[in-house]
Amino acid sequence: MRELLLELEQAVQQQKPVCYTCLVETRGSTPQKPGAAMLIYRDGSQAGTLGGGCVEAEVKRRALRMFEADAPEIMTFQLDSDYGWDDGLICGGRMKVLVDPIRSEADLEYYKSMLQLLDGDQGCTEAVVINPETAAGGSETDRYLIDAESNIVAWRGQPEPPSQLWDGLKPIKNRPRPYVNGGIAYLTFLQTCQLVIVGCGHIGQKVAALASDVGFEIIAVDDRQEYCNSERFPDAKQLIVGSFDTVLSDLTVNKDTFIIIVTRGHNHDEEALGHLAQTEARYIGMIGSKRKVKLIFEDLLRTGTPRAALADVHAPLGFDIGSQTVPEIALSIVAELVAYRNLDTIPASYQRPSLVEEIKTPDQVG
């Protein structure tokens, strides 16, 4: 989407007439899902896709008539035999597409705000009125950009949103998919979460591949160049090689960072957790048996790590799904990461008390 908005901005600056089109609602089987967007130029060329040649051809045909229109429009397309003539695409679903002709810098202001929110990568929601009868007080095509703190930062149409907008809004931190509620389509732009993988052995490598596929931004850390490299971690945004003591002391961690500790041994796991347990990371997990985890917790308690910090560590790491092989272990870990990212908690059936609760302090033993 970011690249499409940059191209839209360039087209307006070059005084090149363009229509912004966006899929706002689908029902049944469709080639794309809500949020898909496409630019259409007066000469019939395009950027982006709405997913399917026959659909795009019909959207273009109707959008080309709108370059002189005074207002956006929402068009409905029924994917039946009427639209299957050129490539056999007969999905049987329905699509609603917003078509917005952009001609001036004033028209562009809303999209500049959208680009700014996406560049900030905190997650945001675009609310589009698609049924004014249900969304009382709103007009069709009214649009509102809502940041991660549920503030409206820009609008296109009426400045005052219908009251139903707030009733249907889901927190973006819970990573909802696009949805419709009360005559309003909510198009969600989710934040990219950073996953730091400390330990680049077989499990770390497999976790990186799976986690990248589900939207995590990978940072791989190890003290061995032969393990921490672009050949083994082709999707990693960053590769950090060096002693764990040095690189973890300098690692930037924020409240949106996920961390897993999967090094090759007990001592390295303990060293890594000692550096990371008191950071503001959203999630820290460590692999290992219950016995190993308790031994590491005992050592760190003796050296001053607060019990509360260790209680927040997810260890042993991963859902208990009877994993035996490396791919199964990686799958159990990524499942836990996704659950915590999307739900902000561990599902009740997988919750377990922290092993730090089983460790008695000297005064408790006495």
Rank of each mutant, 00 (worst) to 15 (best):
Y179D: 07
L317A: 03
G204A: 07
C200Q: 08
G120Q: 14
A47G: 08
I259K: 01
G215A: 07
V365H: 06
C22Y: 07
P234Y: 14
L8A: 02
M286L: 11
Q78C: 07
S289H: 13
L165G: 01
A272T: 09
V129E: 03
G274T: 02
R282G: 06
R264D: 10
I261P: 01
T26C: 10
S230F: 14
A136I: 12
N174V: 09
C19A: 14
T345E: 15
G53I: 08
G48I: 02
E105R: 10
D82Y: 06
K112P: 03
S139G: 14
G44V: 13
S243A: 11
L145H: 01
I346T: 13
E68V: 06
T49M: 12
R291P: 00
L145P: 00
S289A: 12
I90W: 05
L195Y: 05
I152W: 10
E328H: 10
V198P: 06
A335N: 09
P31G: 11
S323P: 09
I146V: 09
E357H: 10
K112I: 15
A209P: 00
I346C: 06
S332Q: 07
V214I: 13
L165A: 02
Q10H: 14
I260S: 01
A309W: 01
L251C: 04
Q78I: 08
R156S: 06
G318E: 11
T125P: 05
L195H: 04
L115S: 02
E226C: 06
V59P: 03
D107L: 05
Y340L: 12
A309D: 10
V253Q: 07
I130N: 00
E160K: 15
E160S: 11
K60L: 13
A148Y: 15
G366E: 09
I329E: 08
I130G: 01
K255Q: 10
H268Q: 10
E7R: 11
A37L: 05
G318N: 08
Y20A: 03
L195G: 04
P159S: 15
D86W: 06
I184H: 00
P306Q: 07
D119T: 05
R307A: 10
R291Y: 09
I284G: 04
Q238W: 13
L337E: 03
Y340N: 09
